[in-house]
């Protein structure tokens, strides 16, 4: 822990992440907001002022409040996505490594296919077919995240599965499932943790990108990508509408990336970049 605290950028990252966590958790208490009804047409498109620090939007809604509540959407969806893809990717990766043979081959083939779609392309294809909604975006981005965990866990388990303590457990008659859960998985946790923390930043970006494309959250949900999309059409007259949520995305992703890098350095000093 002390070693971690000496990593300055890791501490800054942790501070940013804690800031977003606390503010988004407290948002309903500190700044109650109802996306459907809180509007004030008399105060449309007002530039930043003392009363509205980040200005107001085309429906007279306070931009700071919406960015604040947008954090709730982005962060909670990101955590769900990372959870789903970590669970699925890990399960498939462990399965491939311990079953070997044709199962390993076909799973790896499937993963190669997922990896053949660059960036958010696969998510775009899935959501475009399923219909635009935050839930479908969540499903699509979760699928997109599977290969990372699969690869990391498969190679970690392959490195472990022939070691003596594993063979000993097998010789004592433990089932494959028991060996995997009790002996292999606990020893492969650190690459998994690194993968998870580095994935959160990417996921926040992916959700915002789909939101911007109109494939994620739908109005009036205060979602960062969607807010940039809405503000973009009035960019010349009201730049604050898209600048504020964009900066929030940047800051949140920056925090998670800095923290993720520090955690990776911590677990794997060999990999320091």
């Amino acid at each position: 822990m002390r070693r971690f605290l000496r990593n300055r950028s890791g501490v800054i990252g942790l501070a940013i992440v804690l800031f977003f966590t606390v503010t988004t958790l407290l948002a309903p208490v500190l700044r109650p907001y109802n996306a459907g009804t809180d509007r004030n047409l008399a105060k449309r498109l007002k530039p930043p002022s003392a009363e509205h620090v980040l200005g107001t939007d085309e429906l007279g809604r306070d931009v700071l409040t919406r960015v604040w509540h947008g954090g709730r959407v982005s962060l909670s969806v990101s955590l769900l996505v990372v959870g789903f893809s970590a669970l699925l990717g890990t399960a498939l990766g462990v399965l491939a490594a311990i079953m070997r043979g044709w199962l390993d081959l076909s799973l790896s083939w499937f993963i190669d296919i997922l990896l053949a779609f660059p960036g958010i392309l696969l998510a775009i294809a899935i959501v475009a077919a399923l219909g635009a909604s935050l839930t479908n975006a969540l499903v699509a981005i979760s699928i997109m995240g599977i290969p990372g965990y699969y690869r990391v866990m498969r190679s970690a388990i392959i490195g472990l599965r022939d070691l003596e303590f594993v063979q000993a457990a097998e010789a004592l008659g433990s089932s494959k499932l028991r060996v995997a859960l009790k002996h292999l998985l606990p020893n492969a946790l650190s690459p998994l943790i690194v993968q998870v923390t580095l994935a959160i930043g990417r996921t926040v970006l992916a959700i915002a990108s789909l939101g911007f494309l109109g494939l994620g959250a739908q109005p009036p949900t205060p979602e960062w990508g969607l807010m940039i999309k809405a503000g973009y059409s009035q960019f010349l007259t009201a730049p604050w509408l898209s600048i504020a949520p964009g900066f929030a995305i940047y800051l949140a992703v920056l925090g998670f990336n800095m923290l993720g890098d520090a955690i990776r350095d911590h677990f794997d000093p060999q990999l320091r970049t």
Partner: peptide
């Protein structure tokens, strides 16, 4: 340099585009 590098992967690309247009074109 490391800060530039970690920032570069943290910007949403569509937002960078909008901000660049605002600063350098508008």
């Amino acid at each position: 340099m490391l800060f530039i590098a970690v920032s570069g992967v943290s910007f949403p690309v569509f937002w960078t585009a909008i901000v660049l247009i605002y600063l350098f074109s508008v």
